[in-house]
């Protein structure tokens, strides 16, 4: 009888393990690349994450027999411990994956806004011609959350004054960076409150 019970328990445990694995993999695919991340409904994903890790959520998957021998209990406990430990690892994986998605989304926003800023500056910067000279100058930018340009400073000028002047002239044409308005405030503070523009005379710097 005991043997039969043990076999049954083992069967249930295996079933339980398989159902756990299945439930984990039925979450929208988390290990995604940049393009997939665009398609994921981020809000739903977070909700699912909450359900998964909510302690009040009934853990129906693990059922205990009330009457067992101590040896069987130990075996069950060991098996449970193994499953729980496995489950914990999976939870970590999932959280990591979600963090990755968040990061990927943030990265996308940063790249998108950076690209718009890059295009706007390029459209107003009248670059002096310097075929043979490779020059670099760095400007630090200080923005208000409204996108208003509060301050800029040529922190690392090049050795060529006309190159520097052309940059200052371009920067003086800028008053607002409206594109940052589309950003989450935290992301703005982390990345666009203060950032640098690096002007290069050519793509090939010696």
């Amino acid at each position: 009888m005991n043997k039969a019970l043990t076999s049954l328990n083992t069967f249930f445990l295996v079933l339980l393990f398989l159902s756990l694995i299945f439930s984990i993999f039925s979450i929208p695919k988390l290990n995604i690349d940049k393009t997939q991340s665009i398609r994921v409904n981020f809000y739903e994903l977070i909700q699912e994450e909450d359900i998964l890790f909510d302690s009040s959520f009934p853990k129906t998957t693990v059922k205990k027999e009330t009457k067992k021998t101590s040896a069987t209990d130990e075996k069950i406990k060991a098996a449970e411990a193994a499953i729980v430990s496995k489950f914990k690892i999976n939870k970590l994986d999932i959280k990591n994956e979600i963090s990755k998605i968040k990061l990927s989304k943030e990265r996308e926003d940063i790249l998108r806004v950076s690209a718009i800023i890059q295009a706007r500056i390029s459209s107003i910067w009248i670059k002096p011609n310097s075929l043979s000279e490779s020059l670099i100058a760095k400007v630090s930018i200080n923005l208000a959350p409204s996108g208003e340009l509060l301050n800029f400073d040529l922190i690392e000028p090049s050795i060529n004054s006309s190159f520097n002047n052309s940059i200052l002239t371009a920067m003086n044409k800028m008053t607002f960076f409206e594109e940052v308005l589309s950003l989450d405030r935290k992301l703005f503070e982390q990345n666009f409150r203060n950032f640098n523009l690096v002007f290069k005379s050519s793509g090939e710097i010696e």
Binding site: L92, S99, Q118, S123, I126, Q190, N196, S202
Partner: peptide
């Protein structure tokens, strides 16, 4: 692993500043 990811984020936000490269100038005169 979590701590590691968090550390990268924090260190990113504290120690690095976003840099946007401007290579192309305007075609306007």
């Amino acid at each position: 692993r979590f701590l590691f990811v968090a550390l990268i984020l924090v260190s990113n936000s504290i120690f690095s500043i976003l840099e946007i490269e401007i290579l192309k100038g305007s075609d306007n005169l």
